[in-house]
Amino acid sequence: MADFRVIHKTKYSYDDFVAYCHNMAHMYPLTTTHQDCYRTHVTVNPKPVVSSFRRDYFGNQVFLFSVEDPHRFLEVVVESTVRTHQSFDFDLSKSTPWEHIYDLIHESALDADLQAIEFIQPSPFIPSKQLYSDFISNIFTNNKPVFQGALELTQYIFQNFQYDPKATNINTPLEQVLFERKGVCQDFSHLMIAALRSLKIPCRYVSGYLETLPPPGIQKLQGSDATHAWVSVYCPTFGWMDFDPTNGKMISEEYIITAIGRDYSDVSPLKGILFGGGKHKLKVEVDVLREQI
């Protein structure tokens, strides 16, 4: 168990005045079996004329706001208090063999199984192509328990792909990530999801935060953390389990969940429409601070 204070600052600076803007933010940590979110406070500058909270289709807490006064910058600060729980010990070899999952969830009358079906389908950033099933054919062999295979795939991506923030951007095709074997957490999560969905295994894209620690003797820099992404895989009876291909492991207490969807398009931290502004500069600072219990 661990307590965290998370501060997420986003600032846009524009070359010209923005007449008005409408925005949607996924920055509100969820309360799940993995964690409890006790408090979230949002500050927007300039002050919005209209703002509200709602739950989206996937159950995420979404903050909607509109700034209708002309402005040259927009700053959004979200501060949350979260307690995460230690992951339970589970024998991955006891999970269902991957070949049986598709038939099991289609024959089931359980809501959880039926809801998992949509996470097999292609989504905006994750196409359905044969090359993704070829990519994992040596991992998902006959009767491989699905969670065991997911962990092996997680470790394979970690060991064989290079983390390189300069290699990709939001519009980089997933095939390029596969062929060049470079990218960031978003790319590796999309790739893992594409591979698993090609085998008709339900999986979701998870966005959130990860506590990072500086080298021994070095003070942690303010704003040096970042948003993170990983993958949640479904198995009938056992439910969802989360894997981080960027770091080659299952998630643990240092992970904080903010939103869940089909891919990045469903959970972008901040997006919207604006009128005017010209070119802009974006600055993001994230602090994940462990509190004493």
Rank of each mutant, 00 (worst) to 15 (best):
T10S: 02
Y14N: 13
Y20S: 14
M24S: 13
H26M: 05
H26S: 06
T33R: 14
H34V: 02
H34C: 01
Q35W: 00
D36L: 09
T40K: 06
T40W: 00
T43P: 00
N45V: 13
P46A: 12
S52F: 11
F53Q: 12
R55V: 02
D56L: 00
Y57M: 12
Y57K: 00
Y57N: 03
V62M: 05
L64N: 14
S66C: 09
E68L: 07
H71Y: 14
F73Q: 05
L74R: 10
V77G: 09
V78M: 03
S80K: 06
T84F: 07
T84Q: 12
D91A: 09
L92H: 05
L92K: 12
S93W: 03
K94W: 14
S95Q: 13
T96H: 07
T96D: 05
T96W: 04
I101E: 05
D103R: 14
I105S: 05
H106L: 12
D113L: 10
L114G: 04
A116K: 07
Q121D: 14
P122S: 09
P124H: 09
S128W: 07
K129T: 07
S133T: 13
D134L: 05
F135V: 01
N138T: 09
N143S: 15
P145K: 15
V146T: 15
F147N: 10
Q155H: 05
I157R: 10
F158E: 04
N160I: 08
Q162Y: 00
P165T: 11
A167H: 08
N169I: 02
I170S: 14
N171I: 15
N171M: 13
T172S: 15
T172Y: 07
T172V: 04
P173C: 07
E175D: 06
L178H: 03
E180N: 02
E180T: 00
R181N: 11
Q186H: 05
S189D: 02
M192P: 03
M192W: 02
I193D: 07
A195W: 00
S207A: 08
L210I: 05
Q222S: 13
Q222C: 03
Q222V: 06
G223D: 11
G223K: 09
S224D: 08
T227W: 00
W230V: 08
V233K: 09
V233I: 14
P236R: 07
F238R: 14
D244T: 11
P245K: 00
T246D: 11
T246S: 13
G248C: 01
E253P: 01
Y255R: 01
I256L: 15
I256Q: 06
A259N: 02
G261R: 10
G261N: 12
R262M: 10
D263L: 11
S265D: 10
D266I: 01
G272H: 03
I273R: 08
L274R: 15
L274V: 07
G277T: 03
G277S: 11
H280I: 01
V286R: 14
D287T: 13
R290V: 08
I293T: 15
